[in-house]
Nucleic acid binder design. Structure first.
Lengths: 103, 103
DNA sequence: CTATATTTGTCAATATCTGGCAACTCTATT
DNA sequence: AATAGAGTTGCCAGATATTGACAAATATAG
């Protein structure tokens, strides 16, 4: 439900860093980092990259968690959540196939 | 990419209705319906229900398309789009299992 | 040319997001 | 019990985005 923030906190603790130290590197204030770790606010796209560099952790992994949180936010209250995901997935695959055939 | 709007338009045409006629039932103006059909604007949650009633078409189907469009909007620009979807899917299943066990 | 259907562009009002700060809690130290 | 450091909570003003509404443009058919 807040996979990105949890991962960030985990990585920060594994690196033995304080919020103060990480926050300054990402150029945000400490309360903001606290909120991101607890899922009260979303990080910005560029900050995901910065986090991955600070913790030397694959950006794709972080990005997936960050996106997943945003997707979850969209569908969480609907019964057809899972169905909607698979509709999106199909559409995405269709698009990918089209773009692959065109070059 | 605009699955909801396309479906709405299709249903409207199958019912032989004009935008003017549908718009008044959904209580929106005609330009707005036009934009929704072309994916330039999003319908509101309640309007999805209204559409399903007007066209006598399963709400779940429409809702899935409507949600899928919103999800697509979130992930469309990222390489890890598909991966992010499966992360969300797993999280969703996990939640569902937890809530099923508690009653 | 006229009428009707649809699309496009624009704009103010409203809602949402963002960054930043002050104040608070909690824990450990002296 | 006072101080200090780490993290949290609440709040607010400025920036951004979304919305509904309307006028005008385009398209199509008679």
């Amino acid at each position: 439900m807040n996979q990105f923030g949890e991962q960030i906190r985990l990585l920060r603790e594994q690196c033995g860093l304080l919020q103060r130290q990480v926050a300054s590197q990402v150029e945000m204030d400490i309360p903001m980092l606290s909120k991101i770790e607890r899922g009260e606010r979303n990080a910005k796209r560029e900050q995901v990259t910065t986090f991955s560099k600070i913790f030397n952790f694959p950006e794709d992994e972080l990005l997936s968690l960050w996106l997943a949180d945003k997707v979850f936010e969209v569908i969480k209250n609907e019964d057809v959540a899972l169905k909607a995901l698979s509709v999106t997935e199909n559409e995405l695959r269709k698009m990918k196939m089209l773009s692959e055939n065109s070059h």
